[in-house]
Computed example of a mutant assay.
Amino acid sequence: MIFHETPVAGCRLIELEKRGDARGFFARLFCEREFAQAGLETRFVQANNSLTSEAGTLRGLHYQLPPAAEVKLVRCVRGVLWDVVLDLRPDSPSFGRWFGAELSAENRRMMYVPRGCAHGFVTLGDDAEALYFVSAFYGPEEERGVRWNDPRFAIDWPVTPTTISDKDAAWPDFNDDFHGTARLRGVR
Score class of each variant (00 low, 15 high):
residue 1 M to F: 07
residue 2 I to E: 15
residue 3 F to G: 13
residue 8 V to W: 05
residue 9 A to T: 15
residue 10 G to W: 01
residue 11 C to E: 06
residue 11 C to D: 10
residue 12 R to N: 09
residue 18 K to T: 10
residue 21 D to W: 07
residue 21 D to H: 06
residue 30 F to V: 12
residue 31 C to V: 13
residue 32 E to N: 04
residue 33 R to F: 09
residue 34 E to R: 15
residue 35 F to P: 06
residue 37 Q to C: 08
residue 40 L to M: 13
residue 44 F to H: 07
residue 45 V to E: 15
residue 47 A to G: 09
residue 47 A to E: 14
residue 48 N to Y: 04
residue 51 L to W: 06
residue 56 G to E: 10
residue 60 G to D: 08
residue 60 G to T: 03
residue 67 P to N: 05
residue 69 A to Y: 02
residue 71 V to F: 00
residue 71 V to G: 03
residue 71 V to H: 00
residue 74 V to I: 14
residue 81 L to F: 01
residue 85 V to E: 04
residue 87 D to I: 01
residue 89 R to P: 01
residue 92 S to R: 03
residue 92 S to D: 07
residue 100 G to F: 04
residue 100 G to H: 03
residue 108 R to C: 11
residue 108 R to H: 12
residue 112 Y to F: 15
residue 115 R to D: 05
residue 119 H to N: 10
residue 119 H to T: 05
residue 119 H to S: 13
residue 122 V to R: 04
residue 126 D to P: 14
residue 141 E to V: 04
residue 147 R to Q: 09
residue 150 D to L: 06
residue 151 P to A: 12
residue 151 P to L: 11
residue 152 R to D: 15
residue 159 V to K: 00
residue 160 T to I: 08
residue 163 T to R: 15
residue 166 D to Y: 01
residue 168 D to Y: 00
residue 169 A to Y: 01
residue 169 A to N: 11
residue 170 A to P: 01
residue 171 W to S: 02
residue 179 H to P: 04
residue 183 R to A: 15
residue 185 R to P: 06
residue 185 R to F: 05
